[in-house]
Design a protein around this nucleic acid. Structure first.
Lengths: 352, 352
DNA sequence: TTGAAAGCGCTAACAG
DNA sequence: CTGTTAGCGCTTTCAA
């Protein structure tokens, strides 16, 4: 037995014939549109069930909608994104919409390819998660199809946004560390040069929040930011630099959990203990932060909420494309764990 | 400025008019089809560039292909899948095909929804990664669209498969532990009751491999399998049981890295050290297994190869639907790290 | 080699 | 409330 010739799909014409009605009638029932009597509806529904009919989304898309929402993720490996995705799919699972994901894209070119592919496939709306593309590209996408941008600050009249308050999150971390008695608190940031991104990307906001909080606590003189990248390696390299300082920081606030992992690696390599010799905090509260052997203090962004908000906004905008754009900002929460503690006694006079 | 009325898309008609040719000619150029002179081709290509034309995949799908390949992932959180996905997208990135992912599906119902959605959207082929659906559903999917099933043993005439040799992988782990001097080696499996899945799912094969290897090393009497689930919690609960044994195992082979994480958690909680008191090995060689503070011994499945093979098979089958089905099996490799070591001296007489 | 014309499956506009 | 008709943007005959 070899793969049989693909049997012809059941179409709306088959259903119409089987139910003894017009294709228009079937179409109306499919879309719950106005203008079909109850008995007509039930007759059509029965035919649909009997024939096992499912509409062809591509064909629907030629005139109306495809009932498909595209979600673009920058990096599948970042364990924060699944949370957001769950929030989206969960909010959409009782609707007719189907979510499809673009595969991990690194960089503007890959993002452009994926967004274009989604537009070309007639998706009804797009949710872009932490895109790195320039603002004008995002706006051109939003011009073609209803778009919600997640995890990027700065608003646009053409797309809606959902963000986490990264400044507040950073303040929470600094406050927590100061409360434990730390004064020499360093921060590892993702190096950013592009001016728009510097204003809109979460990493820049976290660094800002760090600086603000340090000043607010009277620690302006101790501000110490190392810019590497939001990767494990970036954390490792950043920590190396910090550990070489003549006056070593007693705490490191890594801009992301992955970064914190790299920091922990470097700290272990230097023969120092956490949090005995140095405290480490991350951001994102990813699944592995909670893992027993790691137990990383972090900041929870409520990824699920972010996702469900994005799903709501996207549906609202499909319903009314000319509605003014909406910005949703969610508050993060500190999740203290075992990598943060009181600074070593000897360090207390550091800034005294 | 509110979202402007979406400007009309450039269509093949616009291109044809601009290049002063027929739409048929444009279509031929798009598909590199036979029957267009070089000068015609260049004329059309120029028009395409000048107008920024991109074909509408949905419309193409009505007669021909959509140039879209659907990939279904069971669980986005499992860090093994991104590897496979990378292999797929990398192999496909220089082709006209675009990869779209179905969101994480747990269970047969969610899988059915996603596969149907992909078929309804006219995808040219599907790659199903570690699906849990019953065999007949997989075959019905494969009957509708070219399909490659990844990570599931057992062959079918209607779909191609790519698997890792899970039996061999399990043998590698047991051999490694035996070589270090372990005899009481326990295994944590994913509980499986469905008979097809018991024969086809990787977890069952790993458990089989474990048993085979134990017997081959003359350790049949020490075979000890706990069945929980392939999650961190499953590992935690399984380890709890194992640590309560009157004669505690000196090594635990967890069926997956996530499971091993749960084991490490339980072991830490019990105040035992790894590998001093107990060795732990995982399977999948996921990114966090390599993390410094964890450094988990594991088995590498060459996810990237698996993905590129799947991509190749899928293209071959699009080209020839009636070709006999192909099974690809790849060999795993052991990656020893710091969670496995010699058993504690006191335990050596355990089986003497 | 070229292009006119007929659909693919569906929805929108309109007439009965 | 119902059905007829004309497309959506593309590919595929098939004639020229």
């Amino acid at each position: 037995m070899e793969p049989s010739a693909p049997r012809r799909r059941v179409t709306i014409v088959d259903v119409a014939r089987h139910a003894q009605v017009s294709t228009t009638a079937v179409s109306k029932v499919l879309r719950n549109a106005y203008g079909a009597s109850p008995e007509m509806r039930s007759k059509v529904r029965r035919a649909i069930d009997e024939l096992g009919y499912r509409p062809h989304a591509g064909a629907r898309g030629m005139r109306g909608q495809t009932y498909t929402i595209g979600v673009m993720l920058p990096d599948i490996r970042n364990p924060f994104f699944p949370e957001v995705l769950d929030g989206i799919t969960h909010a959409l699972e009782d609707t007719e919409y189907q979510v499809l994901l673009g595969p991990g894209c690194n960089g503007e070119k890959a993002e452009a390819r994926v967004t274009e592919a989604m537009i070309d496939r007639g998706m009804d709306a797009l949710i872009l998660i932490a895109p790195v593309s320039r603002r004008d590209h995002l706006e051109s996408v939003a011009g073609a199809v209803p778009t919600v941008v997640v995890g990027r600050h700065g608003s646009s009249p053409v797309y809606d946004t959902v963000v986490n308050d990264d400044v507040e999150g950073a303040c929470l971390v600094v406050g927590h560390l100061v409360g434990l008695g730390h004064r020499r608190i360093a921060h590892i940031d993702h190096l950013e040069t592009d001016p728009t991104r510097l204003a809109e990307m979460p990493n820049a906001r976290r660094a800002d929040g760090y600086r603000q909080a340090m000043r607010a606590h009277g620690l302006a003189a101790s501000i110490d930011v190392v810019s590497t990248s939001y990767t494990q390696e970036g954390g490792y390299l950043g920590a190396k630099q910090l550990l070489d300082r003549p006056l070593r920081p007693t705490a490191v606030f890594a801009g992301a959990d992955v970064v914190a992992m790299g920091v922990l690696e470097a700290v272990a390599e230097a023969g120092l203990s956490v949090p005995g010799d140095i405290s480490v905090a991350g951001y994102d509260n990813t699944a592995f932060a909670a893992l027993g052997p790691i137990s990383l203090s972090s900041v929870d962004q409520a990824g699920h909420e972010i996702g469900s908000n994005a799903a709501r906004l996207v549906q609202d905008r499909i319903a009314d494309r000319s509605r003014p754009s909406v910005q949703v900002r969610l508050s993060p929460a500190l999740v203290p764990r075992r990598t943060t503690g009181r600074p070593p006694a000897a360090a207390c006079d550091g800034s005294a």
